[in-house]
Nucleic acid binder design. Structure first.
Lengths: 156, 156
DNA sequence: CTTGTGTAGTTGCAATATTAAACCAGATGC
DNA sequence: GCATCTGGTTTAATATTGCAACTACACAAG
């Protein structure tokens, strides 16, 4: 009766959700990407229970999204920072943000906007392009079975 | 002691997660975007308990992501289809997929690839551009306080 | 070195959510 | 009309979440 795991699923969306698809993980990752590093910072900023936070940090570290490093202030504590795999989640956060900006019923409650650091102007919407540079929308794409070949069989 | 709601949060990421950030909603939306419409299709395809599915469908309809329509086969049953707000989640699904494709520890278990329908070639990675067309990455952006930010609690 | 305070958790318990399975009503098919 | 299919709801067991209390160690002051 455990919560059903999506780990072995063949769908990459499900596989991603299996790693950080719970109620808090993406918010922890968001805070990490904003520079929060310490257990107490996450706990105070998110307002979640400490046992839940400890559990989430543990699994995010296990999955290689966060790693622990010695505290940057020279103390004996540790800090949690994003790995490259964790930084790879950034586009997902942007996509979530842009969906709320476009479709939220109360957009006036949104406090911040994403701007490019150089010019201070809002960014464009994330866009999907074909290999030859055409702009694609949902109707222009389809799923194809992955060619099973690829990896050299038996790396012997 | 209820599961803490993120609905009133000022962060657009949290607001999006409040709507479809649970264990099953995004998978239901994924299936809907692949053309699944019937309760039984979702239930069989996802393998989740029927009461959970019923509950999720109800809240997704309440949030305006799905709507019910008369069955397309002329029967007296109803079907669930994505609204424009629901179709707007598509880039999030793409971002999740691309993260798994790039960072999953067992990418050989991923069954499908996303191709453009016209040429049948894999799509490019989602990309974020500035208003004047420069390609941006995580380090090139920053958050700015929204000018007319109204009341709200908590973080960025 | 002793006391006090802050940080980072763990533990125990109550409340809530998820699951699986049984049940049920209306629609469909024969 | 009767059996079956579809789309749920109900019930009971189990798992997860949230909260509060507790602990262990770090650090700072005296």
């Amino acid at each position: 009766m455990k919560r059903t795991s999506l780990a072995g699923d063949s769908c990459p969306v499900a596989r991603a959700l299996d790693v950080f698809g719970d109620w808090w993980s993406l918010l922890i990752i968001r805070d990490a990407s904003l520079g929060r590093r310490r257990f107490g910072e996450f706990q105070a900023g998110l307002g979640l229970a400490k046992n839940i936070l400890a559990s989430r940090l543990r699994t995010l570290v296990e999955h290689g999204i966060l790693k622990t490093v010695p505290a940057s202030d020279g103390s004996a504590y540790q800090e949690y920072v994003l790995t490259p795999k964790g930084h790879g989640i950034f586009p997902i956060l942007v996509a979530l943000r842009q969906w709320s900006e476009e479709f939220d019923d109360h957009p006036e409650e949104i406090a911040t906007i994403l701007v490019d650091r150089e010019k201070g102007k809002p960014v464009r919407k994330l866009a999907l392009f074909s290999q030859d540079g055409r702009l694609l929308n949902e109707a222009d794409i389809t799923l194809k079975q992955r060619p099973e070949a690829k990896r050299a069989r038996a790396s012997a």
